[in-house]
Structure formats: structure tokens, C-alpha cells
Write a protein that binds this DNA or RNA. Structure first.
Lengths: 196, 196
DNA sequence: CTCATTTTTGTTATTCACTAACATTTGTTA
DNA sequence: TAACAAATGTTAGTGAATAACAAAAATGAG
């Protein structure tokens, strides 16, 4: 039987290669621009052929967009008190997921976020990914897919979150993200501009 | 002086060609699928070369996504009573823009909407376009770009609208759109799931 | 350790979206 | 009808993505 546990050499090499590709890609994108960097260049920088690149990432975009935050968010959401309103669940789940990150991670995340919001191809794919998470979140909250009211609320909540990210990307305080998120959700809850 | 008014033969031919390209594209996409249809095929069907296609539409996606609804929406938004809350302005501006459309237009719009939500490349670009309209809407409402509270509210409102479109695309009543939009905005205004 | 098996990688060729340069046709104006 | 401007065709090229097959590396068994 062929069953190399997680510690197998193969597994380690794969994880390493994936990381290498991502790091070289990000470095090249930031220094020369996204379009000016070909997949060939990234692969060569990582010491492999372009085919290997595409075996790790289905598209050039995915090398930037691949992230591991969704499962964390889902777990946190499910752990929130059931009576809490959706938007509060979302707000706090995100903040809780962000809190344990080391300061350095924020800097990288900000760089990545700026890149994504700057490059049209990345931006478009990012929106699409985000809407794909809607289904995940609805499931995590225990709503059947198709529950329209909950769907609308989750979509609005996610839009708020993205707007917060967008605002974060446009200013220079790396540590401002939690505050921005809170302000954004406060605005959503008031929701009555111009009056009141 | 070269000044062929709107009625010039050139203008008419250009408008016609644009329409031809869009119609053939939509027809081919619906019958054979989006990816299975090449730009070459569309161009040939319209009796031109692929270069001409790209002179009318910058990308293959744009031949589906190009629409003329944004200016209408902006005009309606600006005409709403200033004291009305943002989400109500948005809801009614959209409904007013939709009302004068002939029944046939709805059928076409539904087809197009389904295509967009089905094809990943179109979906992604659509989200991106939508977020681009945020700026337009903010301007139409008289908020300076960067007004964060209004930004959040507009983003949430647009997300609601898109969710309504998504729901519309997944059912079979062509005439249900206004009702779905109303229900979606009602949900947004309640915004307090699970309790209250 | 060695050999057969499985997984991963490289090579090569191909498709398709999209761009650039230049020649050609077609509408417009005098 | 001649001169000009705008739209189109032709051709060649780049780069992302896929497919098919050959080569190399890791794994497990004996």
C-alpha cells in the first residue's frame, strides 16, 4: 500500500515548492508588475518548468489569491452564539480570526491586498472568490442554500468587509484594519444615511 | 472639416456592426457554450475579421457585459428626494429604471444574466464592473469619493441588488424581478437575523 | 540494498485571446 | 472626381493554459 503520511519527503517537498512559487511570484509581481511577469519567469526563478507551475496553481492569478483564511472564518462563525445577529457574527468572527496574527503577517497581507485591488485580473477573481464564500458562510451558519433573507444579509455583510479591506489598502496604517472593520460594520448597522 | 453628424453612414454602420457582433456572440454562446465559441467564430459569423471584433470590444467578455443601464441608474438616483435613505434611493431608482422595459427585454436580460452567472470569466468581470459602479453611484448621490460610511452603505446595497439578480437567474418566472428586488431590500432593512 | 510501482516533473506541440505594424478598402468632404 | 480620414484586413507575434508522452525521483516490499 502506498501511504506516505504527512511527514513523507514527497509531502514536504511539495509544500516547499508551493511556497517557493508563491514567494517568487509575489516578489516579481511587486518589483516588475503583474503583467510584466510571465509564468515562465516565476517557474524559472523557482527552478522548475512552467508546467510544474500550473500543476501547483491552476492559473497565474491563483498564485496570489490562494489563501487559507476561509476555513478559519467558517470555524469562528459556527462558534458564535446562535442568537447573535448575522452581521455581528461576521464582524466578530473576522476580528477573532485576525487577532492572533503576528504583526509581520499584517504587512504581508496589506501588500497582497494592495496588489489584488490594483491588478484588474486579480480584483475580478477576488470578487468571484468572495461570492463563492457566501455559500460556505451560509452553511456554517446553519442556513439551507436558498434561504433568501440570510443570503442577502450575508452578501451585504461580505460587501462591508471588502469595503473595509479596500479602505485599508488605500491608507498607510498597517495596524488600522480592526478599527476600519469596526467602523464599517457600525455604518452598516446604522444604515440610514442621510437622515437619522 | 470632418463632421459627419450622428446620421452619417459611418455611424450607422458602426452601430449596426456592434449590434451584429453582440447578437451573434450571444447566439453562439447560448447554443455552443462560452468557452467553445472562439472570437474568430463570432467575427466570421458577423462577416468580419477577428481584429474588427477587438476594435469594437476590448475583450471577449465585454461583448456580453457591455450594457447601457449605468447612466439610467445614475440619472434616477440623482432625481430621488435628498432626504431619502440610500438603500431606498437605490431600490426605487432600480425599479424605476426597470419599469419601462418591454416584456421582451426582460427575457433577453434573464438569458444574459444566467449566462453571466454561469460562466466564471463573465461572473468575475461582472463583480468587478459592479464595484466600479460604486464610485459612480457615490458621485450621483453627491458624496465625495472616500466618504466611508456612504461607501459601505452603497456597497451593501449593490450586493443586495446582485443577490436579487442571482435569485432571479435561478428561478423561472421572467416577471419576478421587481418582487425579488423588493423582498431583498426588505431583508436588508430588517437586517437582524436571527432574532427580532 | 534493489527492484517494481507510483508520483512528480520535463519536453514538446497546440489552441486561443489579444496586440502591433502596415497595407487596403471605404466613407467623407471639397 | 480627387484628397483625406476612418474603418478594416493581413500577417506575425506574445503569453496563458492544456494535452500527450518521456524521464526522473520517491516509496514500499522483499
Amino acid at each position: 500500500m502506498t501511504k506516505a503520511a504527512d511527514g513523507g519527503l514527497r509531502h514536504r517537498k511539495k509544500a516547499l515548492m508551493r511556497q517557493q512559487l508563491q514567494q517568487h511570484a509575489l516578489r516579481l509581481f511587486l518589483s516588475q508588475g503583474y503583467e510584466a511577469t510571465t509564468v515562465e519567469m516565476i517557474a524559472t526563478a523557482a527552478g522548475v518548468s512552467h508546467m510544474t507551475f500550473f500543476r501547483y496553481f491552476p492559473t497565474k492569478e491563483d498564485v496570489v489569491l490562494a489563501d487559507e483564511y476561509d476555513p478559519v472564518l467558517v470555524a469562528r462563525l459556527a462558534a458564535r452564539p446562535p442568537t447573535e445577529p448575522i452581521w455581528e457574527k461576521l464582524r466578530h468572527a473576522v476580528l477573532e480570526g485576525l487577532a492572533p496574527l503576528p504583526a509581520e503577517a499584517y504587512a504581508v497581507l496589506l501588500q497582497r491586498t494592495r496588489l489584488i485591488f490594483t491588478v484588474p485580473a486579480l480584483r475580478a477573481r477576488q470578487w468571484d472568490q468572495q461570492h463563492a464564500t457566501e455559500a460556505l458562510i451560509l452553511a456554517a451558519l446553519g442556513y439551507p442554500t436558498g434561504e433568501r433573507t440570510a443570503w442577502v444579509l450575508v452578501a451585504a455583510g461580505l460587501a462591508t468587509l471588502t469595503t473595509a479591506l479596500s479602505i485599508w489598502a488605500e491608507q498607510d496604517d498597517v495596524s488600522a484594519l480592526p478599527n476600519i472593520i469596526n467602523t464599517a460594520f457600525d455604518a452598516l448597522l446604522k444604515g440610514r444615511l442621510p437622515y437619522e
